Amino acid sequence: MIYFLVRILFPKKNISTVILLSLLICYSIEFLQLYQDEWIIRLRKTIFGRYVLGQGFLWSDILAYTFGILSISFIEKIILKYKKV
């Protein structure tokens, strides 16, 4: 989802830039889950906070973000390759 959002916001950027920016956003959100202050805990108890900020840090989420972003970028490269022909 983040990859598509970044691609929509920056349609002229090359794929590697979109990959790096997407990973940076995803990793930042995931590592932000390690921060446990009262105000952010209250925010995480809301629907918005739960879905955007998440509840807890997991290394498996880092792997899932990486796999997902690399997979969709690979699919995009294939589609663009055949679209030009």
Rank of each mutant, 00 (worst) to 15 (best):
I2G: 02
I2M: 00
F4E: 08
F4G: 12
L5Y: 12
V6S: 07
R7L: 08
R7Q: 04
R7I: 04
R7A: 12
R7P: 11
I8M: 05
I8V: 13
I8G: 00
K12Y: 05
K13G: 01
I15E: 09
I15G: 04
I15R: 01
I15V: 12
T17L: 11
T17I: 04
T17M: 10
V18A: 03
V18H: 02
I19E: 02
I19Q: 03
L20S: 13
S22T: 08
L24W: 02
L24P: 09
I25H: 00
C26E: 07
C26F: 03
S28V: 11
F31H: 06
L34F: 06
L34H: 03
Y35I: 14
E38F: 09
E38A: 13
W39N: 14
I40H: 07
I40E: 00
I40R: 08
I41N: 14
R42F: 05
R44E: 11
R44F: 02
K45R: 08
K45H: 14
I47C: 02
I47F: 09
F48V: 12
F48W: 06
R50S: 15
R50E: 15
V52L: 15
G54D: 09
G54T: 10
G54K: 05
F57S: 09
L58A: 00
L58G: 00
W59A: 00
W59F: 08
S60K: 10
D61N: 08
I62A: 10
I62S: 11
L63F: 04
A64H: 06
Y65I: 00
T66C: 00
F67L: 04
F67A: 06
G68H: 01
G68A: 05
I69S: 00
L70T: 05
S71F: 15
S73V: 09
S73R: 08
I75W: 04
I75E: 02
E76N: 11
K77N: 12
I78D: 05
I79L: 13
I79Y: 07
L80Q: 15
L80P: 10
K81S: 14
Y82E: 14
K83E: 06
K84E: 08
